[in-house]
Amino acid sequence: MLIPHPLLGLRDAQEFTYLGDASLLNRPDASSPDAAVAFFDYVYLRDNPAGVHRELWFHEQGDRSWLIVTRNTLTHEILNAELACESAVKSEVLA
């Protein structure tokens, strides 16, 4: 698989380390009263979709940036890749 890195162009997926569902960016608030339930959900439960999946890849053998890659788990087709830091900023602004 080739990942279209927003800064470096097409890079071999072998340069990356895979973490999992991009929802891992949304860490629950540890001080909230339902933190135990929220963290159980965050740490252990996954949507695990068959189809389009947004997921975190770390460019460990490259520029050490975290990317959010949108990929189809049925075909391995990669639809999009963006910097996780920019996506996080965007979602904060939206929130």
């Binding site: 999992g20 959900d41 252990y44 439960l45 996954r46 949507d47 695990n48 979709p49 068959a50």
Partner: peptide
């Protein structure tokens, strides 16, 4: 292999990745 897909029909999210 397809557990998440089938159990989602019952509205469940599983501690599983495929």
């Amino acid at each position: 292999g397809s557990s998440s897909r089938v159990m989602s029909m019952a509205g469940m999210r599983l501690p599983v990745e495929s």
